[in-house]
Amino acid sequence: MENLQFNPVTGPVTAQERAYAINALSTTKEALHASVTGLSVEQLTYKPGPDRWSITECLEHIVLVEKGIFGAVRSGMNGPAEPDKRAEIKVSDVDVIKGVRSRSFRIQAPTPFVPTGRFGDAAGALAAFDEQRAAVVDYAQTVTDDLRTHYFMHLVMGRLDDYQALLLIASHGERHRKQIEEIKDSPNYPSTSPPL
């Protein structure tokens, strides 16, 4: 996911902005796959502490959040455009990306997004992720309504436009991919385990 330069929003999503979002969604998917490919069940289920998530739980959380954000985006796009509400947006596209990708602060996951083993195992969670992410990429490629005049409410950042919500999806996945790498760097992380 390459860095984005700050540009003020002056109209509907441009072809360049759309291409950026699609690229961000695609490259963060590839990076997540690269982070978990070849890991054993022991590695995937290892927790660095009693109050920390495993890699499998991180995967589940990513899927749950993406489904929630994407559902809200599609629902919001069904309503009328509200260009006057742009004044309520307090963050730039760059702020969304950098703020969400950063692991310098933590937020307690709301209950609906806490992992509970809904997908069975890491393979099930990754399959659900791939299906969900494919739907988001397809939407980003084909949506014709103005993403800049429909909105998503974020718990911390407040009102975002729906284009920023697509960037949020990519950035959130990247945030938790970094968490997966932190788990893999834990002192007691299993080095290898025989495949099942």
Rank of each mutant, 00 (worst) to 15 (best):
A24L: 05
T37A: 13
S40K: 06
P115V: 02
Q164H: 10
L64R: 06
D130S: 14
T149P: 05
A127G: 13
Y46C: 02
L25A: 00
I55L: 00
S26P: 05
P110W: 01
G158C: 06
M157K: 15
Y151D: 06
T45L: 10
G120F: 10
P8R: 02
T56R: 06
P194I: 13
S193M: 13
G76A: 12
G71H: 14
A19L: 01
R52Y: 04
I180R: 00
N3Y: 14
I180N: 05
P110F: 03
S104H: 13
Q141A: 09
L59Q: 06
L155G: 10
W53K: 00
K47A: 01
K90F: 08
I169G: 00
V100W: 02
L59R: 04
L155P: 06
P115T: 02
L44H: 06
F113R: 05
A128V: 08
S186C: 07
T149N: 09
Q108W: 00
Q5G: 12
G68T: 07
Y151G: 01
N78P: 05
P194H: 12
L25Q: 01
E42Q: 11
A140V: 01
A128Y: 07
H61P: 01
V114A: 07
K29Y: 07
S191E: 13
V96P: 01
Q16P: 03
E82K: 15
A109F: 01
L168Q: 03
V41C: 06
S35Q: 08
A31H: 09
T45K: 12
V137H: 04
D146R: 12
F6N: 06
V9F: 00
D95C: 03
G173N: 11
P115Y: 10
F105D: 02
A134L: 13
V156I: 14
A134G: 12
H150R: 13
A24V: 01
F113W: 12
E174M: 12
S75C: 11
F70D: 14
V36T: 07
A31G: 10
A31I: 11
F129L: 14
L4M: 10
